[in-house]
Design a protein around this nucleic acid. Structure first.
Lengths: 343, 343
DNA sequence: CTGAAAGCGCTAACAC
DNA sequence: GTGTTAGCGCTTTCAG
């Protein structure tokens, strides 16, 4: 009732008429406690509404009781999309089963970066999930050498983390491109994402692979930046450089939306003149004109699996990296009725 | 270099040749330390790469060093949208300036609820930001009585929290409705949101107010549930019950999308036969057919202001509640060219 | 099976 | 200004 002084373990022990250590054992359900005492303690906990003090426990055990989900990126707006939120939902769904809290760090400013670095050095969390690093983020290397367990969400370019879960970007891109081939297109272009992000390069590779297999030309390429405007500009350039193209695989839906607009302004019909496939299956994709065929990735699962992997890691086991399958979602921006699934 | 034993304050003190308390004072830049010692300590901190142990500090000061952003809702999918992520970006932008960590709790399961309750009772965080409660969430009352500072994001129905920041839902709805009047519509219907959510009731009130002022009939009402399908069903019902309607204010863009589809299937032209205004300005709104006029709310600011309010609260001051203005974003689903701003 | 005692790393009185 | 001291609430040897 009195919120002034919190209920401590001593209170519980006193109330239950046992020693503090006995009470402690019960609470951490350790062995060597008689049933009688155990029940007494449990009752006292109930009566008093005892909740252990996390800081004290952390100090004593050298375990913080929390893991962090860290996103390292230059622009905070990267987090504003639905992607990040879904990851959190996935992560939470598994953390909920444990006693771990979730801390979120958006390491965007210099200050945020520093804090993340310190975290990695000084074990102020029991584990870290690290996401969406651009290029050669120094944090990535730091994380690999860190004393605290780290799992990566996605893979940075030029760097294969030990533990990661990633969407099958390459397979998804292959799926998209193969689909374009399957519906009879032969002059297939691509608008890539940023080439300093893992997803950007992987999707580009998938495109190349698919066309190589078919013996088709993979030279109709313009590099984009994952933004809507960038997609528009890239599409314009593509049209200028390769006026004969009959399809384009765009490495993100945002860019595809920009591309669709430019295509329309150029008087090209979709999918009549040019078929378009995007990537991500964002909510808007079903409402564009025409609705966008795209590759859907299981974002929530990504969060889920990252958290699970982190748990196995903290429990001392050694997980293997995970690649999550993507799938083709067919809409009106392409025509055929094939369906398929990567991985 | 040796990650085995972390660097402690004692190490720093020894290295700097001062007492532990002196070192402590320097680190918390408290007074009563000579410049010479201060510099020595600072150097030692640098050399050793000392970072204070958060748990120990928390235990000693009875301050956790972290605040939590808690979302209480039945369905975890509620968090999956971009809304939540933007709030986090806003929150982080102010927390970044402090030494506080951000914990995120999705109190969706019974377990999550319990943890949130315990948090409120046992002060395991220095403050709580509580969002999006449905109806009479018991957590809301609990939070008001809690010992730990709580600020609400949005207001639950039937309950005015002491400290909150909310978007001007009512004003936004009024804005939307007035816009419809301004473009010459007279038989204006509405599809409301869930009436057990604050945003749902507030937007409905705004609609009623606007029409009352104009002396127009506010009886063309169907209650929706904030989902796309629900919006479609509601629109169908509206059309059946009030075939004469010439405009509809829909309490969310998701529902508006469903409504647009039904309108199209019914052969109604938008905005020719029926003008439509949504609410929220989600990313998809600019890509619907026709693009959706809607009310935009400053979600990131909402997070920002919640965090700021929490800080003033923890610093012992008494903030006043905040209502953030919304604004009309005009697109092709209405015709006029008026612009305006609530609040 | 049980309890006493020694810390975990830090802060905050309190004397000097 | 400065250092000594006593805890914060919990876990964990270590005897019994």
């Amino acid at each position: 009732m009195n919120p002034r002084r919190p209920v401590t373990l001593d209170d519980v022990a006193r109330r239950a008429g046992v020693s503090r250590s006995a009470a402690s054992r019960v609470i951490n359900n350790a062995p060597h406690v008689s049933k009688a005492k155990r029940d007494a303690v449990l009752r006292a906990v109930q009566d008093l509404g005892y909740v252990p003090n996390a800081s004290a426990r952390a100090l004593a055990t050298n375990q913080v009781g929390a893991v962090v989900l860290a996103l390292s990126a230059e622009d905070p707006q990267v987090f504003a999309g639905p992607f990040f939120a879904e990851v959190i939902v996935g992560v939470t769904s598994v953390l909920e089963e444990t006693d771990l809290e979730l801390m979120v760090m958006l390491a965007t400013s210099a200050r945020g970066q520093t804090r993340l670095e310190q975290l990695l050095r000084t074990r102020q969390a029991d584990g870290v999930m690290l996401m969406s690093m651009h290029g050669d983020d120094p944090i990535a290397r730091l994380a690999e050498q860190s004393d605290v367990p780290v799992v990566f969400g996605g893979r940075p370019v030029n760097f294969e983390p030990r533990y990661y879960v990633d969407a099958d970007n390459r397979g998804g891109a292959r799926l998209a491109t193969e689909h374009l081939v399957a519906i009879g297109r032969r002059r297939i272009a691509t608008i890539t994402g940023r080439m300093d992000e893992g997803a950007g390069t992987a999707r580009y590779k998938g495109y190349q692979e698919a066309l190589a297999v078919e013996g088709l030309d993979a030279g109709r390429v313009v590099h984009g930046d994952f933004t809507e405007d960038g997609g528009g500009r890239a599409m314009a350039e593509l049209l200028a450089r390769h006026p004969d193209l009959d399809a384009v695989f765009v490495a993100s839906d945002q860019m595809a939306i920009g591309a669709l607009r430019v295509l329309k302004d150029a008087g090209k019909s979709v999918p009549g003149d040019v078929a378009v496939v995007g990537f991500n299956d964002i909510a808007t994709a079903r409402h564009t004109a025409p609705p966008l065929t795209t590759i859907s990735q299981p974002i929530q699962s990504l969060g889920h699996e990252m958290a699970r992997m982190l748990l196995t890691l903290t429990s001392g086991e050694t997980p293997s990296p995970l690649i999550l399958p993507t799938r083709l979602v067919q809409r009106a921006s392409t025509t055929s009725t094939v369906t398929a699934c990567s991985a």
